[in-house]
Structures are given as C-alpha cells and as structure tokens.
Simulated scan of single mutants.
Amino acid sequence: MTKTATLQQALTRFLDPAGLDRHRQRVCTHLLACRTEVMGGMVLQCSDCAHVQPHYFGCRDRHCPQCQGRAIEQWAERQQANILPVRYYHVVFTLPHSLNGWVQLHPEVIHRLLFQSAWHTLRMFGRDPKRLDGQMGMIAVLHTWGQNLSQHVHLHCLVPGGALSDDGNWREARSNYLFPVRALSRHFRGHMVSALRKVATAGDLHRVTWPGDVDEQLNTLMTTEWVVYSKDCLEHTPAVVRYLARYTRQIAISNARILTVDDHQVILRYKDYRDRERHKPLILDGKEFVRRFLLHVLPKGLMRVRHYGFLANRCRRQRLVQIRRALAVVEPAPDADMAASEAEPTYTCPHCRQPSLQMIGILSPQRPSCGPPPNHQEQRYRT
C-alpha cells in the first residue's frame, strides 16, 4: 500500500455519502479525486534520462493530507520573518468537552466565540496597568482534534512576551508563564459563557432544542475548571512556529499515521500523552474512522488562522517597525530564500534522481461518474 493512497482507500471502502451534508460530500469528493486522473495533470519527461511519467494535480482542499505542503512552508517562513527578538509564549485555550455537541450543531458560532474570548482575555490582561499596560499581539490557530481523532477543540496561540505602550515603548513580560494561568482560565471561562448566553438569547443557538439545555449547560460550565496552558518558548520559538504551521492547512490525520486499511478496520499510530508520549497503534472500525475524520471538516469560509493586536494584518508592518525601533534592533532585510520558495516547483526524476523533469504535455481532467466536479486549482499549467 502506498503512503499517498491510505486515506483515499479508507474513504473509498467505508464512506457512506448518505446522511452527509453537501459540504462534507464535496470535501470527500475532493479528497478521493486528489492526485488522480480525475484532476488532470501533466506529462513530464526527464531531460537527462528521457524517463516519462504523469503528474496529477492535487485537489488543494484544506482538509487534504496530500496537499498544501508548500503553502505550509511559506506560511512558516512569513511568520519567521516577523519574529521579534523577545521572549515568546505558547498559550493554549481549550473548550470543555461538554461543548462538543454545540460545536457540531453551531460550528461557526462556537469557533467565532472561542477566538474572540481567547483574544479578549489576553488583551484585557495586557492592557491592565498593573501588568503590561499596552497592546499585545497574538497568532491563533484552531485545532479541533486529539491524537485519536476525537473532538478536542482548542486554540494554539503564539504570543510575543510584551506589549506596545501608547507612548511607543516596549514593555517586556518577565515571567515564564506570561500571566497567572488560573486567572487566565477564570477570565476566559467567564467571557466565553457570557458570550454563549448572549447568542443563545439572540436565537443564534436555535439547533439546541432540548428544553432547558442552554441554561443547564451554561450553569454547569461556570462550575467547571477550564484548561489554559501557558509556557515560554524562548529557546525554541522557531519550532513552535513550525508546529503551528502544520495545522494552518491540514486537518486531523496525515497519511504517515495510517498504518493499515483492510476490509473492516483502520489501524493508525497515535501518541499517548498519558504514557510518556509513547507511540501506540489504535484500531478503529472503518465507519468509526470515517466518522471521526469528518468531525473535523470545518465550515466553508471559516478562517482557521487569525492575527490580533499589533500582529493584525491591517497594522502589523507599522507596529513591528515601532517595536523594533523601541528595542533598538535593525529591521531585517528581505529573505531571498522566501522569494525562492515561492517560485514554480521543480520535479525530481524518480529514475535518475535529478531535478530535470519537464512538461511535454497535459492530461485533461476526467469528470467522476457522480458527485460535483473537482475543485480544479491548477489551470496555470494548461496551455
């Protein structure tokens, strides 16, 4: 079994389109068509050894484990270019599992409130005159799964350790946890529950139909300890950036983690954090594997990565210049490697191992027998 066929094989064997909403059906159609003749492609020939082979296009769907590799690398390089010479913190805001049902019923609402509550919490602590008394910045990446594909909704946040004051000075955070974690957790919980109560009153949680469920759930949430993790990453900030980058355009499962697919089950590898992070096999019934995978298909248009504060897109360039000036550091020059990474890809010949494959023809897409047409994103290769 080839590595690139494992998820496609599992979907082919166990996917039942009946009962799926239109968006999930379309995502599955893209994944099944990815890098097959359905997508069309190019005919490549090696200029050294004359080897000829087809190259099929990817589906470019953000849920596909085979696509987005170059986009992930480019995103990481852009974030590395914006790294400041300060201490950074890795902060994680986690939703209680009791909200998982609401996440499936109203994913747009719950995810939006999660982002808003996490940023509101950090912004208020940063603006506190007794703490940093300034504007903070944050990069937040939504992550919805655990190692066993269960639903585990949380935000990974990369936070520069300090704030830009109103007078243009940089106020540095000096602790190894940014702010007291218990205080962060209580504030995050209070803001999130209050926001949920407001949207419920406005009728935005209309799919929650069980009588009294909203009030009972919110009252229970206020008596539950919420999990917030915060730790400095002074020595390994680039590694955290690369860690976040992996989840900007991929989801749930990579082909490398799927060990076996047969007629009845799927065996995948997972990391058991409760047992010293040992890698173990997990056996799932085929339909259960597909069900868990589809839990993490995000609604169309939902932004998984968001920037806040002085890292927001509208003001990032100006604010970073101000901060570097306050820190008395030189503005970095444009990175030539980043420009090179955005150039057209080269293709290595599998026969002679040289990057000498060149296009000599095109392969037209073949429409599948059923379902919507593939999301063809590679028209630039066509003549």
Rank of each mutant, 00 (worst) to 15 (best):
L113A: 01
H120S: 15
H120G: 03
T237C: 12
M192K: 00
C157W: 12
Y243I: 03
G134P: 00
R112N: 12
S117V: 01
V241Y: 06
K231V: 08
H236A: 13
W210S: 14
M124Q: 13
Q151S: 14
D213G: 05
R242N: 11
R182G: 10
F179N: 02
S165K: 13
T201I: 02
V159R: 09
S150T: 13
R171C: 11
A118R: 09
V240T: 12
L218N: 01
P238R: 14
M124C: 08
Y243V: 02
T224H: 10
E235I: 04
H152A: 10
S230P: 07
L234N: 09
L122R: 13
H106L: 06
C233N: 06
A173P: 08
V214G: 01
T144F: 07
Q217W: 06
E108W: 12
P129Q: 02
V214N: 04
R207D: 06
N219Q: 03
L149R: 15
D166H: 11
G146H: 09
C157G: 05
H120Q: 15
Q217K: 11
M138S: 03
V181Q: 08
R197G: 00
L184E: 00
L196M: 06
G203E: 00
G203Y: 02
R189E: 06
H206T: 01
V153E: 01
G190K: 03
F125N: 03
R131Y: 05
A163K: 14
P160I: 10
L244W: 06
R174A: 13
V241K: 06
Y177D: 04
R174G: 05
D232M: 06
G162D: 14
A195S: 11
N219E: 04
N148I: 07
W170P: 08
T220I: 07
Y247T: 04
P238K: 09
S165C: 14
V208P: 01
V159M: 04
H111G: 02
A200N: 00
D215K: 00
A140S: 14
V141H: 05
D133G: 03
T144P: 05
I110M: 12
P107Q: 10
W170H: 07
D204T: 00
E108Q: 15
G161F: 10
A173D: 07
Q135Y: 08
E235N: 13
L142H: 11
W145Q: 11
F188V: 01
K130D: 13
L164S: 05
